[in-house]
Design a binder for these strands. Structure first.
Length: 513
RNA sequence: GCGGGUAUAGCUCAAUGGUAGAGCGCUAGCCUUCCAAGCUAGCUAUGAGGGUUCGAUUCCCUCUACCCGCUCCA
């Protein structure tokens, strides 16, 4: 088991700056609400970014649902019953009283920290120089919370804070503020009493934006299984927005408060009910780990920039039997693209406990009811789109004899926002008309094509290179004579002559490769 | 959350206590027959708020956002 090694000297620290600039210039990603000064961690996808992300999601759906008999999809609501989050455990940490040590920066639950007598003098050691690890002995008095830091023993602590990992809102037309002001009218309450009144009033209508899409696959487990007559092993897949009030956000769109997930819950036999010849839960775990890793490399991410990192035992949740992260070597170091978790039967049992409804699968072969095990590949659509973008970003030096290099996004053609650009070599002799007709043919076939006649032909090629457009078709003098055009491939810059009549078919075939 | 840095045109950068420039880009036109050619004309900017000042993009304060490092990440 390898430990995460997040830190590494960045080989190209400036690549992100260039990519952010290109993203804005070419319309991949903009900062949200930019004219108002921006909003922390929020980004908007522009026209090309939207196409890219849609293509990423479409490829995922194709690989996970369309081409598989054993997986079906759902599209659940973002707001779910609050008890879903009690069952999943998200609401517990949400309301836990958290406290920070001001000396060693340890953070934890105040009700779990060592008790100490209020006002008592204590002695503790603090690391004063992180490089040498030099410590200094200090003294202090225990404060009102009557606890000390479990790490360094310091009584120098922050106030209690409750971290809102989930976005809370209220469902219903009555504003909780109305309820609160009514209940508080004419009352003089202590801080603790006041808090209770507020918490109760808010709780009555409180709902939360989902922090993950996974729970809807568990709550709908039997609905889906019965409606679609699914037999174990089978999976339920979903794509959609999730929301987390992250403590920190970083690295462009890599970690943000609003993000899109692509998750699949694969229900398989627990060991005691596994028939002969069927994959075991651990074999499915390996299968999905490898399948998900391969998905990224098949869509063009360089193999040496991808790895599967097994979680160390102390990183795992208590119920998990394993977790592999698919990681990408971002410009700032290795970071998570996707997590494949072996969740045992924890989630279904939790929901069974909290809802009081049976969530067992009836296995007609074994003639038994049981809770299936679950393997969960959970990917981030925004992270995937970002990784594809970073990996595709290439700066080529000027070829011998010239002085202009080129910037090219070597995206997999199926991920490219624009598939084909069609140019008239010059703006005369009917070439623009022919070119526009070709664009029309592509549009009719559902292939995103654009027309461009501005500037010299070389410049138009370079513009498309920056957008990641894999194919450029040019109408020239020969077109009028024999009905042929050139098709130029983005990465090799090689040109073939093809018939106009075959153009759509040729591109379709190349996209299918 | 802590520390450091940054904020000028669509992008990359310059300059200035007194009319804010360039390159690329973009728009229109001319020219142009295959890999960022040329000519002409045009468009576009000092993150937000406050203070000092006759006058602030420039000095000061606050806020916001972004970047780097630490911290955190159910």
């Amino acid at each position: 088991m390898s430990k995460p090694d997040k830190k590494k000297p960045s080989a190209e620290p400036e690549i992100m700056e260039k990519l952010v600039a290109l993203s804005k210039q070419r319309g991949f990603v903009f900062q949200s609400s930019e004219i108002y000064g921006g909003l922390k961690s929020c980004y908007d996808y522009g026209p090309l970014g939207t196409e890219l992300k849609r293509n990423v999601k479409a490829e995922w759906w194709r690989a996970m649902v369309t081409t598989r008999e054993d997986i079906v999809g759902i599209d659940a609501s973002i707001i779910m019953h609050p008890n879903v989050w009690r069952a999943s455990g998200h609401l517990a940490t949400f309301s836990d009283p958290m406290v920070d040590c001001k000396d060693c920066k340890e953070r934890g639950r105040s009700d779990k920290w060592p008790k100490a007598e209020k006002g008592a003098e204590v002695e503790y050691k603090v690391v004063v120089d992180h490089q040498s690890g030099k410590k200094e002995t200090r003294k202090g008095a225990v404060g009102d919370l009557a606890i000390v830091c479990p790490n360094c023993g310091s009584p120098n602590l922050s106030d209690i804070r409750r971290f809102n990992l989930m976005f809370r809102t209220s469902l219903g037309s009555i504003d909780p503020l109305e309820t609160i002001s009514r209940r508080l009218e004419g009352k003089a309450l202590s801080g603790e009493e006041l808090r209770k009144v507020l918490a109760d009033a808010i709780d009555e209508t409180a709902v939360y934006l989902r922090p993950e899409t996974a729970q809807a696959m568990f709550t709908n487990f039997l609905n889906v299984q019965q409606a679609m007559r699914m037999k174990i092993p089978f999976g339920i897949a979903q794509q959609g927005k999730s929301f987390r009030n992250e403590i920190t956000v970083e690295h462009f769109t890599f970690r943000s408060c609003e993000f899109e997930q692509m998750e699949m819950e694969f229900f398989c036999h627990p060991p005691e009910f596994k028939p002969e010849g069927e994959k075991s839960d651990m074999e499915w775990f390996e299968y999905w780990s490898n399948a998900r890793l391969a998905w990224y490399s098949n869509l063009g991410i360089r193999k040496e920039k991808l790895r599967l990192r097994p979680h160390a035992a102390d990183e795992l949740s208590h119920y998990a039997k394993g977790c592999n992260d698919v990681e990408y070597d971002y410009p700032w170091g290795w970071g998570e693209l996707e997590g494949i978790a072996h969740r045992s039967d924890y989630d279904l049992k939790q929901h069974e406990k909290h809802s009081g409804k049976k969530l067992t699968y009836f296995d007609p072969q074994a003639n038994k009811h049981y809770h299936p095990y679950v393997i969960e590949p959970a990917a981030g659509a925004d992270r995937a789109a970002l990784a594809f973008l970073i990996d595709a970003y290439t700066e080529e030096p000027p070829p011998p004899g010239t002085n202009e290099g080129r910037t090219v996004l070597k995206l997999h053609p199926r991920l490219s926002p624009i598939k084909v650009a069609v140019f008239p070599l010059v703006k005369k002799e009917g070439m623009p008309e022919s070119a526009r007709k070709i664009v029309g043919e592509f549009s009719k076939s559902g292939i995103k094509a654009v027309y461009d006649e501005k500037d010299a032909i070389g410049r138009r090629y370079r513009r498309q290179d920056e957008c990641g457009t894999p194919y450029c078709i040019t109408v020239d003098g020969q077109t009028a004579q024999d009905g042929s055009v050139t098709i130029r491939e983005r990465d090799s810059m090689k040109q073939d002559r093809i018939q106009v009549a075959d153009a759509v078919k040729v591109v379709q075939n190349r996209l299918a490769e």
